Simulated scan of single mutants.
Amino acid sequence: MVEVKSESKRHKGVGKISGRQRVTMHDIARVAGCSQATVSLVLNNNESVKISEQTRERVFEAAKSLGYRRAARPTPSVSEKSSFINGPIAFVVDNLAASPESVNAFDGVMQAVKSTGNLVLLAETQNDPDLEPKTLQHFLDQGVAAIVYACVFTREVEVPQILQECNTPVFLLNCFSENLRFPAVIPSDIAGGHTATNALINTGHTRIATITGEPFMQCASGRTVGYRNALASADLPYCEELVVEGNWLPSSGYSATQTLMALPNPPTAIFCQNDRMAVGCYEALKEMGKSIPNDVSVIGYDDDEIARHMSPPLTSMNLASRAMGRWVVEQLFHGPMGENRRHPLTKLECEMVERDSIAPPRMAKPPG
């Protein structure tokens, strides 16, 4: 995968983009303190909307500080033209509105094809067994160059028969098939859960709780495995009482936090396995008169837009949705293909975005 390293800078109230990750307009918006739509208008020199010079300068400064580089559309030579894919790319997702991850993955595809000139067509099937095959057949009849088959929740899928029988390249995004016949990419949730928990351990916490998602979902089970692995690596005990099941909604984060803080020996840090549950966690802690992070540190997951607007701004794991979209396009244009070959399942690491919701526990000294 072709990536651009972003600078690891800390921006007050916004956070630090850690590790190796291609800089996107979403990153620039987070640093500049504006919407992604504003960043797009500014960087594309679109003057149809009046934007203040101050905002424009802030966007340009954020883009410069993060090392953003706009990909120029290549002009292929005659010998190179055969390597370009003709026709639109179809992005077919089960549910677009359930969470921002699907939108972000689609945005990643859109960003990646800016340098190729391909169009991207979008359709939502809502897991409808009648609508899905009709949608796929429509795109195949239109002669699309490739189909991206995406799921809102990471899981193993049975690839529709129509895609198994077609000659059009098919890519699985946030899902995978048992036979690994199709190139597939998912987030590395085990590594993400480990990184989130380890950040709390490195700050000095030893009594760390987690509020999980629904356990039948692969992302929740993976993040919990990562949580347990991090504790084991630090030689910290795993305590069942510190693991409370949620359902991804703020209300479950609220009630789970009440349960955790009512323990005789409550945690000093809480790993919420998505940002929406972290919102409920914040509310519960504040109602108890607890200070974040002085009394209790909190880390989230997904790096939703709300994370940077919370008080204090929430440290969170940036789900690799856009990176998965870019990966698909990279594979389409440059990856190995073959109808009968097995494709290794690709797992993309989630990066931590550091903000102000983590601090050493009271009466504890920072490591080192």
Rank of each mutant, 00 (worst) to 15 (best):
Y282D: 01
W327R: 11
L41N: 09
G193N: 00
A145L: 03
P169R: 03
A234F: 03
D275Q: 05
L96A: 13
E156T: 12
M317V: 13
A98F: 09
P169F: 03
T268P: 05
Y68F: 11
A359R: 04
K16T: 15
F182K: 03
V103H: 08
E330I: 13
V2I: 14
R56K: 13
K290H: 09
G335P: 03
G143E: 00
M337V: 11
N44E: 03
P187D: 04
A29E: 00
N45H: 13
T268V: 10
S233G: 10
V225C: 12
P133L: 07
E241H: 05
H26F: 11
G222C: 05
N318E: 06
N294A: 15
I358R: 06
N274Y: 01
H11I: 13
K12P: 06
L163C: 14
R58Q: 09
I28Q: 04
V92Q: 02
T210L: 00
G213D: 00
V39C: 05
I17H: 06
P76R: 06
D107C: 12
H26K: 12
H138K: 14
E283A: 15
G87K: 08
E283P: 01
E80Q: 13
I208R: 04
T38A: 13
I89S: 02
E7M: 13
P187M: 08
A145I: 09
F60M: 13
E351A: 15
E158K: 15
V93H: 03
N95E: 06
R20E: 13
R362V: 15
P360D: 01
A320L: 08
K286A: 09
K290I: 08
E351C: 12
V92N: 06
T38C: 09
A97L: 13
S52D: 00
K290Q: 11
L314R: 01
L242V: 07
D303R: 04
G368A: 09
A234M: 06
Y149C: 08
A90C: 09
R223A: 10
N294M: 10
V157M: 01
